[in-house]
Write a protein that binds this DNA or RNA. Structure first.
Length: 767
DNA sequence: GAAGTGATGTTTTTT
DNA sequence: ACATCACTTC
């Protein structure tokens, strides 16, 4: 049987149309990965060499899964497909071309912490008030500038940006941005955004280099296209969108699952893609059958996402049967929430014969995991937390990696700052400041200053020792393999000794982590499992560092063991579980207070909720708590509007919603207005009335209610609304398909005039 | 230069 | 609640 027979008709078309531009709009659980992998297999079957195919994903996990699944179809050849994350593939290309942009192939990759530290140092040097110049804010400003292809120069010239900065009382951000770039370059370092930005720049300035890659990658596939930012799409376009290009590109995405707008992702890219490639015979396929979840879940998701204004029209459906209704649990405290979750997990395991691995608990913020942990532990439910502090972000691990980084690239200032006085060797802050100042004045790296500095005898001696350690390490890094070199460096730097002396439980853990890191390096040297076209590996320390720079904790999945998964909704994207708990469904938490004030922010939160509930195959449980500790203080919250947005008939029991709640939980007037106004693009977005549960407004017996056809409703009518009672139609506006009535409800408790979209509202004409 | 103390911000999400 | 950071004291 051919693999093509495993596909439904739409999927099959998406696979078979290998040439020319293709957009696949893929709903949750619609077999997206299957389409991508089979498509690659199919391209190869047509005689294309694996190394002519470039497949880009966002996470290492997705990349690995892809690689594995291609192997299953085409065997060993899969290794030669260029498949990986944007960042890793681009980093690899940049190492090859480094000299053309003034970098060494051994450039360091700065992680977020490094970036913040550099920015902090610059703020300090510029004598700016760091309570005003918040490092996080600035980091994200710089990051989004890069992601939107705005150079420091353009930034300085951009009135809108400057205006924003002035309003935030930070007029010097553009100067910080400029300095930051210079600093990174001087240190031979790139941050995450640079891996994209520098490649763009490289191709921009060197047409012959670009040409080389255009010829190499004849077929391009992009996963999770809704998460790409302007810069990423810019790179993609450079690669395939040019005169005479065959434009063999396939992008797969789901606008409803776009949850990374906060870091520059924009679904505008999907729209632009359609526009850019439509003159070249773009084909659009919509995968609408959901193979993952049962109907209550799929329909609830459909209904909720309809509250969003902008979206590509599609109707996701399931043929997996009605299934269980969605369970809602309300508790008084976050502790009780944890208890109920643990309780329900035990119950479900028995009743439905679930294993722990079938179950996931998803939350909006990582901080919520603590209470949950406590109760899972009490109930003896094994669990594993994903996200949060990654292994590579632990202090002791970063310490050793700092030394390793210096061995490979002594210009790396952040590594130098980290380890120059750890273990303590008498080079304190004042000396460091002096070095840093000298470096700034003479435009040298701190390392170069160290080599020539003239300090007091004692400090001078310490500096000498340190310099020697780094130089020796550098030599070993060149002559030995990664593991041998790392062992040498760990000993020589006295790091092992330092942690050996710490006999506390914590200290022992640290030593253990250090050894785990060294073991990891050992297996890197011994293993050649992951040798692919994009990673022709050598076993040097430099090569090792390049490999781990882009790893996160979710990557070393030791999937042995039976545990319940705890993770943020963001990191759950792409996963599925038989039973899913989404916890903390409260206003200001989910939707987050950070984004609930703007319509776009709220829409993104809703998409996030959409992602959360569509992870569930059979059982979905939503929980919320009336109170919760935040920053050590008790906070009182209301139930999330997202629960309200699920039609009641998909919920198991509405008692959790009813008891103890009053009109507080009905949609607020402001919300009614915002959702009722049709968007300019005319796509769906509507206030959808639900049968009221409890409300101060008059109750109407639903059995006696009979909605009148919306086109019969006229100005002056008196109408009956299930929730708001009797009202008089004051005005009707909007286009013929989107008529909106302004209705005066006598009995409604809040803001009596309401704007209601007739297309969706159920109103009965009384007279 | 190190170690201890109090104030302050932090929690949205990640390559 | 927790961590980080500035400020004090030794």
């Amino acid at each position: 049987m051919s693999y093509l027979d495993e596909l439904n008709p739409v999927q099959r078309q998406a696979v078979e149309n290998t040439d020319g531009p293709v957009l696949v709009v893929a709903g949750p659980g619609s077999g997206k990965t299957r389409v991508l992998t089979y498509r690659i297999a199919h391209i190869m079957e047509k005689g294309v060499a694996p190394w002519e195919i470039l497949s880009l994903t966002f996470t290492n996990k997705a990349a690995r899964e892809m690689q594995e699944r291609i192997s299953k179809v085409v065997g060993d050849k899969a290794r030669n497909v260029w498949s990986g994350t944007f960042h890793s593939i681009f980093a690899r290309i940049l190492r090859v071309e480094a000299d053309k942009i003034g970098y060494s192939p051994n450039f360091t990759i700065y992680d977020t912490e490094d970036t913040k530290s550099v920015i902090g140092a610059i703020i300090k040097e510029m004598n700016l008030d760091k309570t005003v110049y918040n490092v996080n804010t600035i980091r994200s400003r710089i990051s989004s500038a890069k992601s939107s292809l705005i150079t420091p120069r353009l930034y300085a010239e951009n009135e809108a940006m400057k205006m924003q900065d002035r309003q935030a009382k930070m007029p010097f951000i553009s100067d910080i941005y400029l300095k930051y770039g210079e600093r990174c370059k001087r240190a031979g370092a790139m941050d995450f955004d640079d891996l994209l930005y520098r490649l763009y720049e490289l191709w921009q300035k060197n047409p012959e280099v670009l040409d080389k890659y255009r010829k190499r990658f004849r077929y391009l596939l992009v996963d999770e296209f809704q998460d790409t930012n302007t810069l990423q799409y810019g790179i993609i376009r450079k690669l395939v969108h040019f005169e005479g290009s065959p434009r063999n590109i396939c992008v797969v995405g789901d606008d409803a699952q776009s949850i990374y707008a906060f870091r520059g992702a924009t679904i505008q890219n999907i729209l632009d893609f359609e526009k850019d490639f439509s003159p070249f015979g773009i084909k659009v396929f919509k995968l609408e059958e959901n193979y993952r979840s049962t109907e209550h879940i799929v329909q609830a998701a459909n209904e909720v996402i309809r509250f969003n204004k902008k979206q590509i029209q599609k109707k996701i459906w399931s043929s997996k049967g009605t299934g269980q209704k969605i369970k809602v649990i309300k508790t008084m405290t976050d502790a009780e929430e944890g208890k109920r979750v643990a309780d329900t997990i035990s119950e479900q395991r028995n009743r439905f014969h679930l294993r722990n691995t079938d179950i996931a608990v998803l939350y909006r913020t990582n901080a919520q995991s603590r209470v949950l942990e406590e109760y899972l532990r009490r109930y003896n439910i094994p669990y594993k937390i994903f996200g949060g502090l990654s292994f590579y972000q632990r202090k002791e691990v970063k310490d050793l990696i700092g030394y390793l980084r210096l061995a490979v690239n002594p210009k790396d200032e952040e590594a130098l700052r980290r380890v120059i006085n750890f273990p303590k060797r008498g080079i304190g802050d004042s000396t460091l400041d002096k070095i840093s100042e000298l470096a700034g004045q003479q435009n040298l790296t701190m390392w170069e200053v160290l080599l020539h500095i003239d300090a007091g005898t004692r400090t001078q001696k310490s500096i000498h020792e340190f310099v020697k350690i780094v130089q020796d390490s550098g030599q070993k890094a060149e002559s030995l393999n990664a593991h041998e070199a790392a062992m040498y460096i760990a000993k020589q730097s006295k790091l092992i000794e330092e942690y050996n002396q710490d006999k506390t439980v914590e200290g022992l853990g640290r030593l253990e982590n250090l050894n785990a890191l060294l073991d990891g390096i050992k297996s890197f040297v011994e293993d050649d499992e992951f040798e692919t076209a994009s990673e022709q590996q050598n076993k040097s320390l430099a090569s090792y560092l390049q490999n781990i720079a882009l790893l996160t904790d979710q990557d070393d999945e030791s999937k042995n063991g039976d545990y319940v998964t705890l993770m943020s909704v963001h990191s759950a994207k792409g996963l599925e579980f038989k039973s899913v708990f989404v916890v903390g469904l409260e206003e200001k938490l989910f939707p987050s207070f950070m984004s609930m004030d703007t319509p776009d922010g709220l829409d993104e939160e809703r998409r996030l909720f959409y992602v959360a509930i569509t992870r569930a195959e059979q059982y979905l449980t939503l929980t919320f708590s009336m109170s919760r500790y935040k920053f050590g203080q008790m906070q009182y919250n209301e139930m999330s509007r997202f629960i309200e947005e699920i039609p009641r008939d998909h919920l198991e029991s509405t008692s959790a919603l009813r008891s103890g709640f009053s009109a507080d939980f009905e949609p607020t007037p402001s919300r009614t207005t915002t959702t009722a106004v049709p968007s300019k693009s005319g796509v769906s977005g509507a206030f959808k009335p639900r049968p009221a549960s409890s409300n101060a407004a008059p109750r109407i017996d639903p059995a006696l209610f009979k909605a009148s056809p919306s086109d019969q409703i006229k100005v002056g009518n008196t109408v009956l609304h299930l929730k708001f009672g009797e009202g008089k139609v004051l005005n009707i506006d909007g286009g013929k398909d989107n008529r909106i009535a302004t209705i005066f409800f006598e009995a409604a408790d809040d803001g009596q005039e309401k704007r209601i979209m007739l297309k969706f509202a159920k109103l009965q004409i009384v007279e």
